[in-house]
């Protein structure tokens, strides 16, 4: 359906914006390494199911793309364009996010099974993975426009999945409570950012937090 397609497209675009921004400016200023490391964890724990679960060629290719691009981005950030200045303001304690997501995944899962716990963990972790990046934005008070486009496209992906889930619930009777709940949590975390993005960036102002 259109929402899912638009969501996936926006997910894809967000990664391309980020890669393009890093490659062109040859800099990772303003980008949170911690958020990027969390995404590697999210993609690895959710998408390694491609080794034992086949959905479609599209699904497999997308999973491979998200795993490899997220690892590549972390590689660029650590080895190629290392930025100690940005690292110094990237101080969000992610061990709490990882630990909390792990505990939640043990409590909330469809079956107490390795694959299902990993799946649940990835959903919880994804819902909060942007926090170090938003925290960094808040500390610096402003961001490059491209960075804000990246965050927007990434947030749009899960937000667009919400109408997709409603659509699938109506048309197929399919409900994934975990994905829906964590997707809503994720969208709420983004809501403040979306609001500022709409008011500043789309109207041509510099992205500055009020």
């Amino acid at each position: 359906n259109i929402f899912r397609a638009a969501g996936d497209l926006s997910h894809l675009i967000s990664i391309l914006i980020l890669l393009n921004t890093i490659q062109k400016s040859r800099s990772i200023a303003g980008i949170s390494l911690k958020t990027q490391i969390l995404y590697v964890l999210v993609f690895l724990t959710r998408y390694l199911d491609l080794t034992y679960r086949y959905v479609s060629i599209y699904n497999t290719l997308m999973k491979l793309f998200f795993i490899s691009s997220s690892i590549y981005i972390v590689y660029l950030m650590i080895y190629k364009f290392k930025n100690t200045e940005t690292e110094q303001i990237d101080t969000f304690p992610i061990e709490y996010l990882i630990g909390g997501s792990f505990i939640l995944s043990l409590i909330f899962n469809y079956k107490f099974q390795f694959g299902e716990i990993l799946w649940s963990f990835s959903l919880w972790l994804e819902s909060v993975a942007i926090l170090p990046q938003l925290f960094m934005l808040q500390r610096t008070g402003e961001a490059r426009t491209l960075t804000t486009h990246y965050i927007f496209a990434l947030g749009a992906y899960r937000t667009l999945y919400i109408p997709n889930w409603i659509f699938r619930w109506i048309s197929e009777g399919r409900v994934d409570y975990l994905a829906i709940f964590t997707g809503i949590v994720q969208t709420i975390i983004y809501s403040d950012f979306f609001y500022i993005y709409y008011h500043r960036v789309l109207k041509g102002f510099k992205f500055e937090l009020p």
Partner: peptide
């Protein structure tokens, strides 16, 4: 038991 939804999304 609980029904596991098919994990066919990204």
């Amino acid at each position: 038991g609980k029904k596991i939804p098919n994990h066919d999304e990204l």
